[in-house]
Nucleic acid binder design. Structure first.
Lengths: 255, 255
DNA sequence: CGGCTTGTTGAACAAGGTCAAAACGAGTGG
DNA sequence: CCACTCGTTTTGACCTTGTTCAACAAGCCG
């Protein structure tokens, strides 16, 4: 912020290329000129502020979006008026993949804090993927990865209890931030307890109590939205279901 | 079964073309020759029998699979040894999309009954999609649709209670069969109660009790694995969370 | 038939939800 | 700077839902 008081077009371009690079290209061998072509179709948009909608359920699908900085949530109206949070999106991650099928967004996306977003017009992207095989492959991988992530979440909601869920949530966050080069053990939760609860299928009160409990057990240090993970190993054990064996290791001889 | 006692290669080919057609091509404008080319890369494999594995978690990813007849489940080892069911796959549906990302299958797939499967070598498919734009688009849509379905399931596991889950499950099954031209109200559940429970995140006993309850309430008729939906409307109301207002329509004035 | 798996039913129990209220933080206006 | 309000978070008490444990019935197959 000190030396870059004047933000040049070039610096934005570089920043944006970095963001599309990491989510779309990092693991694949794209030639520099392919990346250039990809970068050319990226649109920059004004930053979103906390509470702003990026798109709304039912909106005509035109583009995919990459989070450059900040964070967003996706959600749909759940039963009974309240909103059901479907996911959180951190820098480098993609939004809108679920809209390709029906041609309109299946959920809404709202900024949790001031966020910068890149827009990738899908029609242009499709043209590009048709002529750059490795980019096409990369797109398939991205879509497939999204499916894999949803599946992980299904596993979470299907079988895990409250503390396993919260532990898994914290670890997932930690890894995603770490992948971006940020601290894996000390970060800011931009969403409210209510949103965490909605995402994990838990009541706000339960989330709150668990944070307190985790802190009492020395696993984390929480202060409002700032959280510090003190015992990653312990959290992993909990999230893997060690809770069963931890307290009462009896039972299990027949069956 | 009476007039087709001799199954010719041609009839299999037609059947298989129908199956790839419906899942990959139906909604899109592919030319007949495109379909021909697509059909050419499809491999036929021997039918699977109940309990056979189609692929196993960790297997090298080579192909996508289309269910021609029968049904399969996908699953991973859950915590504590038991297996966690991730999905059921009916005729016309695709398996293996989650494996593209990592190049190896993220779950195992097992036949629930005798099933015929078409194999689509992914490398060949990718070559084709690169030269047939509408097929590429179709692939994106398919992947996106899978994401959408997972999201629907997330919504289900995140907020719904036991009876809402089972009602939603039955309706989803009904619609999927109906789309295939089969009866929407009278069908065979090829999976066990245990598998339904695992899929819906419920104990076997709860599933069993709910079937009994639904039957007592005149919503369905169940006899072992055969089920008849008597009141689709009622099931929809339950699955949409009408359960809240159905029994005690009091409360709700403050807030 | 006898041994097996799968499904059903009942009773006790516990995890987490709901309700209610207090504590805290951030912003607002006197 | 302090008092006040609004929204979020925390905490406590209670209750509902679904799980667990255990026994039993029903198919299925040698």
């Amino acid at each position: 912020m000190n030396q870059n008081t004047v933000i040049s077009i070039e610096s934005i371009r570089v920043a944006c290329r970095q963001c599309t690079l990491s989510s779309l290209c990092l693991p694949m061998g794209l030639t520099p000129e392919d990346v250039e072509r990809l970068d050319d179709i990226v649109k920059r948009s004004r930053p979103l502020h906390r509470g702003d909608l990026l798109f709304r359920e039912g909106d005509h699908f035109r583009s995919l979006y990459v989070v450059k900085t900040g964070s967003l949530k996706t959600f749909t109206p759940g039963s009974e008026g309240g909103e059901q949070v479907l996911g959180f999106h951190l820098p480098g991650e993609l939004l809108g993949l679920d809209a390709i099928d029906k041609g309109q967004h299946a959920c809404s996306a709202r900024a949790l804090e001031t966020s910068a977003i890149c827009e990738l017009p899908f029609a242009r992207l499709e043209e590009l993927t048709a002529i750059i095989p490795s980019l096409q492959h990369q797109m398939y991988r991205l879509l497939s990865k999204e499916i894999g992530q949803d599946t992980d979440l299904l596993r979470l909601l299907g079988k895990k209890n409250a503390e396993e869920r919260l532990a898994a949530f914290l670890l997932s966050f930690s890894q995603r931030l770490h992948r971006r080069g940020l601290s894996a053990t000390d970060f800011h939760l931009s969403m409210s307890r209510h949103e965490i609860g909605s995402y994990l299928g838990l009541a706000v009160e339960t989330v709150s109590r668990l944070f307190t409990r985790f802190q009492d057990e020395g696993l984390v240090r929480v202060e409002r939205k700032h959280i510090e993970l003190l015992d990653l190993r312990g959290l992993e054990e909990i999230s893997d279901g060690a809770g069963a064996g931890r307290r009462q290791p009896q039972r299990r001889q027949q069956t």
